[in-house]
């Protein structure tokens, strides 16, 4: 079938439905963006799992003191840390998939996509 012939099979209402569907997809696209998660671990255990969409500051207690984690505008960083080298603080805002680890205080912050296993469905 020629493309023109295929198009003639579409009626005005069909175009309407398709346009509405496309508009819906476009509106939802980027909305909620990715299934981002922020996972804060202390001494290997999950201290807090949260969304980067909620602005907040989290105080994570460790063996050296308190590590401050800041979530703002969908980004996450380690604001302050009692460690001497400040490696994790200097790392700044984390991109998706990045991890900041404050080794002395045994705190890690992961910015990862939420795991959704749709296999088999």
């Amino acid at each position: 079938m020629k493309p023109a012939a295929a198009l003639s099979l579409l009626k005005p209402g069909d175009w309407l439905v398709l346009a509405g569907g496309a508009a819906l997809v476009a509106a939802l696209w980027g909305h909620g963006g990715s299934g981002d998660r922020v996972v804060i671990k202390q001494a290997g255990r999950v201290f807090l799992e949260t969304t980067p969409r909620l602005d907040r500051e989290i105080a994570v207690p460790g063996p050296l003191g308190v590590t401050q984690v800041e979530i703002r505008g969908g980004r996450v960083r380690i604001k302050s840390d009692p460690g001497t080298q400040q490696i994790c603080v200097k790392q700044g805002w984390l991109g998706p998939g990045q991890v900041a680890i404050c080794l002395p205080n045994r705190v890690s912050v992961e910015r990862g996509a939420s795991i959704y296993d749709s296999l088999n469905y």
Binding site: L24, H31, G32, G35, Y121
Partner: peptide, 19 residues
């Protein structure tokens, strides 16, 4: 199946596929 999982980001992908 997965209550509490944020499905909003998936909605656009699956709606697009359905389209």
């Amino acid at each position: 199946l997965m209550p509490g999982v944020n499905l909003l980001p998936l909605l656009s992908v699956f709606l697009g596929a359905a389209w």
